[in-house]
Simulated scan of single mutants.
Amino acid sequence: MLPVALLIGSNIMMTIAWYWHLKGGAGKPLIAVILISWGIALFEYCLAVPANRIGYAQGWSGAQLKITQEAITLIVFAGFMVAVLGEPLGWRHCAAFACIMAAVAFLFVGK
């Protein structure tokens, strides 16, 4: 489960790197936002790369690692969307998430 924990941490960092400026940095110059986001993304890579290496060494396929990362991304972003951006979570979000979770299930069935 270490790969999953590292992927959760990396996705939290990347969501912040990509979207923090929509509320907190809207008044900052674009170049400053890009440089700050790159700095945050550096720490994200320090979690994502080991997560993928460890997961692959534990027998996960590349596809399993990627689809797991995508599912985690949606969970993390849904929380960010509601808590930070103040946007509501609707039925369409839940339906789209269910489709991604079905994709996760398809890749892990029979492993």
Rank of each mutant, 00 (worst) to 15 (best):
K66R: 12
G55D: 05
M101Y: 00
G90R: 10
K23H: 09
F97C: 05
W20T: 02
G62E: 10
A41G: 11
V84M: 05
P29R: 11
I54A: 12
Y45W: 07
A103M: 14
H93V: 10
V4N: 01
G25P: 06
L30I: 15
F106Q: 14
K28W: 08
H93Q: 11
G79R: 03
K23W: 01
A48G: 11
A26D: 12
G79W: 00
L107P: 06
L35R: 07
L42Y: 06
A32H: 10
L2Y: 00
G79C: 08
E70Y: 08
S61M: 04
P29I: 14
M101D: 03
G79K: 05
H21D: 12
P50L: 05
A32I: 15
P50M: 02
P3S: 08
E87A: 11
P29Q: 13
G24S: 12
I16K: 03
F106A: 15
Y56H: 08
C94A: 14
H21V: 04
I40D: 07
A71V: 13
T68N: 08
Y19N: 15
A105T: 15
F80G: 09
A78N: 12
G25C: 12
C94H: 08
F80V: 07
I72N: 06
L74F: 09
G24Y: 06
N52R: 06
T15R: 00
Y45G: 14
K28R: 12
M14P: 06
G55C: 04
E70H: 09
I100T: 15
I72P: 08
T73F: 03
A96W: 00
V76C: 06
A5H: 02
V104Y: 01
S37D: 15
L65F: 00
M13K: 02
I40A: 11
L107D: 12
Y56E: 10
G24F: 05
Q69E: 14
L22C: 09
F97H: 04
G79H: 03
R92L: 13
T68Y: 04
M13W: 00
V109C: 13
I54C: 03
S61G: 11
V104T: 10
W38D: 11
H93T: 11
M14Q: 09
I72K: 04
K23P: 07
G25A: 08
T68A: 13
G55F: 00
L85A: 11
A57I: 11
